[in-house]
C-alpha cells in the first residue's frame, strides 16, 4: 500500500520544482504527468525496454522503476533538456536527423539519453561499448544500424565539437579528442 503524498523537490533540466507525490511513485509518472514533460516515454514499466530513460546526475536510468525519492535533489535530465538553452541541438540529435534514425520515434528519447550518457563517459566508443550501453534500449522499428552509425558519427567529430551535456562536469564537456572508430 502506498504511503501519503508529500512535497518533493526535483531538479529537472536545471529547473527546481516541488511537487506533491508519493515518494514510491516512479519518477517517470512525475515527469510526464506532474511536470508535463511528455518526451520521456512509458514502454514496459519493468526496466526492460529503455523508452523511459532519463539521466540522473548524468547516468542513464530507467525512470519507470526509479522511485521519485531516489531522484530528490539530484540532477534529472530528460530529452527536453538535451539541447542547449539557446535551442541548438545536441550533436547526437543532429546526427539522428542526418542519419534519419527514427521511424516511429517512440523509443528515440530513451535511445538519445542513453547515447548521450555513453558519449559523456566514453567519447570514442567501440562497437562493443555501444552494444553494452545501448542494449537496454529496444527499438521495435529496428533502427539499430542507424543508431550505431549516428553515435559513431558524433564520436568521429568529437574533436572538433565540444558538445553540450547538461549533466556532465564542465571539464568533460571541453574534453575532446580525435579518435579512431570502427564503423559497423
Amino acid at each position: 500500500m502506498s504511503s501519503q503524498s508529500q512535497p518533493i523537490t526535483l531538479v529537472v533540466n536545471g529547473q527546481s520544482q516541488t511537487i506533491e507525490a508519493d515518494p514510491a511513485q516512479p519518477l517517470l509518472w512525475a515527469i510526464r504527468e506532474q511536470l508535463g514533460l511528455t518526451g520521456t516515454k512509458f514502454g514496459c514499466g519493468i526496466a526492460q525496454c529503455g523508452a523511459c530513460t532519463v539521466q540522473l546526475n548524468g547516468q542513464p536510468i530507467r525512470s519507470c522503476v526509479t522511485p521519485i525519492s531516489a531522484a530528490a535533489g539530484a540532477q534529472v535530465t530528460t530529452i527536453e533538456g538535451l539541447q542547449s538553452d539557446d535551442g541548438a541541438l545536441h550533436p547526437l540529435q543532429q546526427a539522428w536527423i542526418d542519419e534519419q534514425v527514427p521511424q516511429c520515434g517512440y523509443c528515440q528519447s530513451g535511445q538519445l539519453m542513453s547515447a548521450a550518457a555513453l558519449l559523456s563517459a566514453n567519447p570514442s566508443p567501440s562497437d562493443d561499448d555501444i552494444n553494452t550501453a545501448m542494449r537496454g534500449n529496444v527499438c521495435r522499428c529496428g533502427m539499430y544500424n542507424r543508431i550505431r552509425r549516428a553515435i559513431h558519427k558524433v564520436a568521429d567529430t568529437n574533436g572538433a565539437v565540444a558538445f553540450f551535456d547538461p549533466a556532465a562536469p564542465l571539464s568533460k564537456q571541453e574534453t575532446g579528442q580525435d579518435v579512431e572508430v570502427n564503423h559497423g
Binding site: 508535463g36 514533460l37 511528455t38 518526451g39 520521456t40 516515454k41 512509458f42 530528460t78 530529452i79 527536453e80 538535451l82 539541447q83 541541438l89 540529435q93 539522428w96 536527423i97 534519419q100 534514425v101 527514427p102 520515434g105 517512440y106 528515440q108 528519447s109 538519445l112
Partner: peptide, 21 residues
C-alpha cells in the same frame, strides 16, 4: 528527401497519442 516527421522525434516534441493533454 529527409522525412518531415524526424526533427520532432529527436527532441521529444512529437506528441504521440499517449502524450495527449
Amino acid at each position: 528527401k529527409p522525412r518531415f516527421d524526424i526533427p520532432g522525434k529527436v527532441n521529444g516534441s512529437t506528441e504521440f497519442g499517449i502524450d495527449a493533454q
